[in-house]
Structure formats: structure tokens, C-alpha cells
């Protein structure tokens, strides 16, 4: 064996070392960016958050007081969005995975889902304003905002549910059908229960998306800081409140506090979703 080859083994060439250094650097940079964002928001916001910040109404356009109505507003909007997008999304996924024939109509449906996922949120907001607020006469309200959010998260619930349903083993379906179960009985009693963790994860992730969304609800949900009494009343969602506080320079402290609460809600939700997923993956891994 020649000397050249032997040295090569013990000292990899310089390009290789520089390159892997750069790759390490890019990974570290990414993690640092993330940490600096979360760190800044949490560091500056945590001091602002206390019980009264969470449970009081804002005073002086939000320069003082709390953010309670905005939290309530966000929760109401998200509730409407999830309660509508959940069933419709799961229904669509069941249709696409279990019933849909391989024809033009099915292709159109999958294409439609893809399209909807690609539409910019502000365009959905504009549409929500023209269709829900004005044309259907829902006005600026929880209903308008919630439905507009539903339009945005629907494609994600469909996709996540589809993925979950596809992982249910064909053996189980056959077992049920061979006992004389109808298609729907099989889906409802065997397929959906097995796909439930995956579907839940998808819907929860949709919730996370909906909670942080602003452009969609700006011109559909309104910006009232009063507590709503029905879904036909306007609310100001927390992200919109944050936007107003920050862009109008009302109060940096209040803005940091709102941002931290918003971030906390989203991260908590995403963490829950991921945990459910990992738990069930680990469990099904043991069994099969």
C-alpha cells in the first residue's frame, strides 16, 4: 500500500474539514436564531405576566390592564374553527382514503385541497370579509373569524387525517369486513378508533396554526376589546392585539407580555400534539 493512501486515512483533506465545520456552523446558527427569538420574548415578557395581566381587561387601549378579552377572543375563534374544520376535514379524509374512485372528481378534490393550502392568509381574510362579513351578513364576529380560520386550517386537517387513516393496517379492515360488517361500520368502529391519535395530533396542530394567525381574522373577527356574549359579536384575537400594541407603539411591555402568552399557548399546543404522536408511535412500535 502506498504512503499517500495511508496518510489520507489519518488526515482527511482540508476541504472536507472546512465543509463539515461550515455545516456544523449552519446547524448551530439555526438553533441560535430560534433560541434568540424565544429567549428574547420570554425574557422580556415573563415579568409582565401575572394573574391580573391574564384576567383583567385592557385599559387605555391596552397600555394598561390585561389581555383577558383577547385570550377569550382567540379561544372562541379557534373553537369555531376546530369544531368546523375537524369534522369536515376528517370526513373529507375518510372519503378520499376509503371511498374515492380514481377519477376526475377525486383528482379535482385533491387539487382543491392543495390549492386551498397555498392561498395566502390575507387573501382568505379578504374573502372572509367579502363573503362572510358582508355578503352573508355575519358582520365582524366570532362566527366570521372562526369560519375564515376554518378555511385556512381545513387542508391541514384533511392531510393529517388522511395520513393517519392510511396507516391503519388493511388486516384489521379485512377482519371486520369478513365478519359481515359494512364499509361504514368498519370505518367507524375499526379504522377511525385506530387512526384517532394521528387525527388528534393533526387537529391539535391545526389549533396551533389558528391561534397564531392574524391576517385572516383582522377583517373578519373585528377588534372589539369587550367580552363577547354570542358568536355574532366581534372580538379581538390575541395576535391582532399584539400587532396593534406593537405597531401603534402603545406599550412595549404589554406587547412583550402578549407575545409571550401567545408564544406559550402555541408552543404548549404543539408540544401536546407531538407528545401524543410520540406516545402512540412508541406504543404501536412495541406491539407490532
Amino acid at each position: 500500500m502506498s504512503a499517500a493512501v495511508r496518510t489520507r486515512i489519518f488526515s482527511p483533506d482540508t476541504t472536507d474539514r472546512v465543509a463539515s465545520l461550515l455545516l456544523w456552523a449552519s446547524a448551530i446558527a439555526t438553533v441560535l436564531i430560534l433560541l434568540s427569538i424565544i429567549g428574547t420574548i420570554v425574557y422580556r415578557g415573563i415579568g409582565v405576566i401575572d394573574i391580573s395581566f391574564l384576567l383583567d381587561s385592557p385599559r387605555m387601549s391596552g397600555a394598561e390592564g390585561g389581555i383577558f378579552p383577547a385570550i377569550v377572543g382567540t379561544l372562541c375563534l379557534v373553537a369555531v374553527a376546530i369544531l368546523t374544520a375537524g369534522p369536515v376535514g376528517v370526513g373529507a379524509a375518510v372519503y378520499l382514503t376509503e371511498y374515492a374512485p380514481d377519477n376526475g372528481v377525486t383528482h379535482m378534490i385533491t387539487f382543491g385541497v392543495e390549492c386551498l393550502a397555498g392561498i395566502p392568509s390575507i387573501v382568505i381574510g379578504l374573502f372572509g370579509y367579502a363573503f362572510l362579513v358582508v355578503y352573508l351578513g355575519f358582520g365582524f364576529s366570532i362566527l366570521s373569524g372562526g369560519l375564515a380560520l376554518m378555511f385556512m386550517i381545513l387542508p391541514w386537517t384533511v392531510r393529517a387525517s388522511e395520513e393517519a387513516i392510511k396507516t391503519v393496517s388493511g388486516d384489521l379492515k379485512e377482519g371486520s369486513v369478513a365478519l359481515g360488517a359494512t364499509k361504514w361500520q368498519t370505518i367507524r368502529q375499526v379504522v377511525l378508533p385506530s387512526a384517532l391519535p394521528g387525527i388528534t395530533t393533526g387537529v391539535i396542530l391545526g389549533t396551533g396554526k389558528a391561534i397564531g394567525e392574524t391576517a385572516v381574522i383582522m377583517y373578519t373577527a373585528g377588534s372589539s376589546l369587550l367580552l363577547p356574549e354570542s358568536i355574532f359579536e366581534p372580538v379581538r384575537a390575541l395576535p391582532y392585539h399584539l400587532y396593534i400594541l406593537a405597531s401603534e407603539g402603545i406599550s412595549d411591555d404589554m406587547a412583550y407580555g402578549s407575545a409571550a402568552v401567545l408564544l406559550g399557548m402555541v408552543l404548549l399546543i404543539n408540544f401536546t400534539a407531538v407528545t401524543i404522536q410520540r406516545y402512540y408511535q412508541a406504543r404501536s412500535g412495541l406491539r407490532h
Binding site: 446547524a27 439555526t30 438553533v31 427569538i37 397564531g212 392574524t214 395576535p239 400587532y243 406593537a246 408552543l267
Partner: peptide, 27 residues
């Protein structure tokens, strides 16, 4: 490091755009 980055990506995707905008505005 893989686990760290995957977790990091999951977190980063979750940050609402208005929060990122706010971060940009103040920092």
C-alpha cells in the same frame, strides 16, 4: 444533534408570524 435540530424545527414552525414580526420590530 439530530434530535435537537428536529425539535428546533418543530418549534420554529410553530412561532406565529406576528410574534416574529414583533421580534423583528423590537430587535
Amino acid at each position: 444533534a439530530q434530535a435537537l435540530i428536529r425539535r428546533g424545527i418543530e418549534l420554529l414552525v410553530g412561532i406565529p408570524s406576528v410574534v416574529l414580526g414583533f421580534f423583528g420590530l423590537v430587535l
